[in-house]
């Protein structure tokens, strides 16, 4: 099977990109893997793709002058170039938007947030906030699938040849919005919440001393999350909110402090591999799903934990 991977505007691989590339190599099973980036300057990316058995890296000649319209045309051109019957990408809005538009244009299946894709294109996904696992089959010749972060183990790049970069020239006509300004967010040294292997989360019980949660996160090399109560109280940014109306995380370790574990919060984290909870209320709902629970004052437990972790690093 020929597979096309759309990495969005990426210029350097991040872990969700590696995960999708690993999956593409597996399901292609000897077929061709083509990769598309929407960023014009792709030479550095080609180097990084060396180990993933990528046949060709497709890249635009120019940056898209509009929102969505030209990017969709670019993916359509890449699709024709690649001869793919399966298009994969990380589960990011810019990728999903293009996939959805082309699913209409080509009457093709679209399945988002896959946690697995088989060689026969059967997709496994987690739905209803982790309450169910479904298998979904595309009935069309062409299928678009976005892949959830942390669902597939990223393979190591295997020192192969960097693919050739093939420029694609596209133009699109139609209605589109234009970006009139961009303010780049200051880079954080912490991993992204949705992609992190370890996530440390603070809830209502943390109080104003949220820096304790951040300190623990940095000790563990973790991303920082917050419950809705902590976000509403202004202790953390909304982008850090884990739960129904925030982000869904599925890390290897989810460690929370002062989080009661309301259903809306559990919806965003219950597929985590290991859940650790610290809460002074022994009846807190979070303990029902925690692999390891500590009933105690987080203002004592967390500093002691941080100290113990530092000693272990010694």
């Amino acid at each position: 099977m020929n597979v096309l991977v759309d990495l969005g505007h990426t210029t350097a691989l991040r872990s969700p990109d590696r995960e999708v590339l690993t999956l593409a190599r597996t399901v292609a099973a000897g077929g061709t893997v083509s990769v598309l980036t929407h960023a014009p300057d792709a030479a550095g990316l080609a180097e990084e793709l060396g180990g993933f058995d990528v046949a060709v890296l497709l890249a635009p000649q120019d940056a898209a002058p509009d929102l969505s319209l030209t990017d969709t045309a670019l993916l359509d051109a890449a699709l024709a170039e690649s001869g793919a019957t399966l298009v994969l990408g990380p589960n990011a809005a810019e990728v999903t938007d293009c996939f959805a538009r082309l699913a209409v244009r080509h009457s093709a299946a679209i399945i988002t947030d896959a946690v697995g894709v088989d060689a026969d294109r059967t997709v496994t996904k987690s739905v209803l906030a982790g309450g169910y696992t479904t298998t979904v089959e595309p009935t069309t010749e062409l299928a678009f699938v976005t892949v959830a972060p942390n669902a597939v183990a990223a393979g190591e790049a295997q020192g192969g040849q960097a693919p050739d970069v093939k420029p694609l020239a596209v133009s699109a006509s139609g209605a589109a919005a234009t970006v009139t300004g961009t303010q780049v967010a200051p880079a954080s040294s912490r991993p992204k919440l949705t992609e992190a292997r370890v996530v440390v989360v603070g809830g209502r019980g943390v109080g104003e001393n949220f820096s304790l949660v951040e300190e623990l996160a940095d000790e563990l090399g973790a991303a920082v999350g917050a419950s809705r109560a902590a976000v509403d109280a202004g202790w953390a940014e909304h982008s850090a909110q884990v739960g129904q109306t925030g982000v869904t995380v599925s890390p290897q370790l989810y460690l929370c402090a002062g989080v009661s574990g309301a259903i809306q919060h559990r919806a965003g984290m219950q597929t985590s591999q290991t859940i650790v909870a610290v809460n002074k209320d022994e009846n807190a709902q979070i303990f029902d799903i925690a692999d390891y629970g500590v009933v105690g004052d987080l203002n004592k437990v967390l500093p002691q934990l941080i100290e113990a972790l530092r000693e272990r690093k010694g």
Partner: peptide
């Protein structure tokens, strides 16, 4: 175009170990 073949309820997460902090919980957790 996308046909759901199966829907399986996720097995409920069982509660694991729960300890009471008696002064050493941070060390035990580490």
């Amino acid at each position: 175009a996308a046909s759901v073949q199966s829907a399986t309820p996720r097995p409920p997460r069982a509660a694991g170990v729960k300890i009471q902090d008696e002064g050493e919980a941070g060390i035990q957790l580490a």
